[in-house]
């Protein structure tokens, strides 16, 4: 079996790409899948700390590309899970050290031995983004339910389609049920309608993410975290299971309606 290569990208920065990569990687590994995550954000390495593997880095992506080490030597195994590896980004180089062709060659080497390769894309639409999407079989576009993030996501969807990548899925991150109930946040249905691509996950705003990032332990490993549950659900959908979406109540209750009436809005 050849690995599927998934790239997680967005238009806007800070919407949750690295968090999603770490958690989807962990959640797929929990399902018994053999997974490699790749940090393609060269110069701004981050996935290592979110996964809690920063102390074990010896070589990085650029060392592999430039032939200073073998691919396997640069891959760090996550000891909490049986088959999860990280290929970290270089911190001291810039994105031009790697080309889209390098990424294709490198991931082709991984294909025979793994089930999934997950690539964490840098923000923006420059070289780093091109590197990240070049080898992708499927692209997961992540956005928050905010005007600027949705707009940038739409632009990225256009660019991804221009690259003839037609398997794109949407993840909406940081949904706040309370604000959705008050009609003060775009709802899932609004974002899906506007962007018109298939939804594969909704992730609520969750403090566990901050705590887990502090500890370097993805929330997908935490059974009490709603966001962790959301990422585990996404992993199961990626594998092909039919998992219902979390219920984030979108219709205002009578009390909400009364409150709005009183506030005059």
């Amino acid at each position: 079996m050849a690995a599927r290569i998934l790239t997680i990208t967005s238009g806007k920065g800070g919407v949750g790409k690295t968090t999603a990569t770490a958690n989807l990687g962990a959640a797929l590994a929990l399902q018994g899948q053999r997974v490699v995550t790749i940090d393609a954000d060269i110069g701004l390495r981050n996935l290592d700390v979110v996964m809690g593997l920063e102390n074990r880095i010896v070589y990085d992506l650029v060392d592999v590309v430039e032939g200073r080490c073998r691919l396997r030597q640069a891959m760090i195994r996550d000891k909490r899970l049986s088959e999860l590896y990280l290929l970290p980004a270089a911190q001291t180089r810039d994105k031009t050290a790697v080309s889209p062709e390098d990424m294709v060659r490198l991931t082709d080497q991984l294909r025979p031995e793994f089930d999934f390769v997950i690539i964490d894309s840098p923000a923006g639409i420059e070289r780093g983004f091109k590197n990240a999407i070049a080898p992708a079989d499927e692209i997961l576009i992540i956005t928050t339910p905010e005007v600027s993030a949705v707009r940038d996501a739409d632009r990225i969807i256009g660019l991804v389609e221009a690259e003839e990548k037609d398997t794109t899925y949407l993840i909406i991150n940081r949904l706040r049920p309370d604000m959705i109930r008050r009609e003060d946040m775009l709802a899932t249905s609004d974002v899906v309608e506007l962007l018109a691509i298939d939804l594969i996950g909704i992730v609520p705003e969750d403090e566990h993410i901050i705590i887990s990032t502090n500890r370097g332990r993805p929330v997908a490993l935490d059974n009490n975290s709603p966001a962790g549950q959301a990422f585990r659900n996404i992993a199961r959908r990626v594998i092909g299971e039919d998992v219902p979406f979390m219920v984030i109540r979108e219709n205002p209750s009578l009390m909400d309606r009364l409150a709005r009436l009183v506030r005059g809005r």
């Binding site: 739409d154 632009r155 008050r182 009609e183 003060d184 775009l186 809005r265």
Partner: peptide, 20 residues
């Protein structure tokens, strides 16, 4: 009532995306 911020966001996005 005034439109909710959700409704305003949705309408603004609709226009912006069409032009983008």
């Amino acid at each position: 009532r005034e439109p909710t911020s959700r409704e305003v966001a949705r309408e603004r996005l609709q226009l912006v995306l069409v032009h983008d």
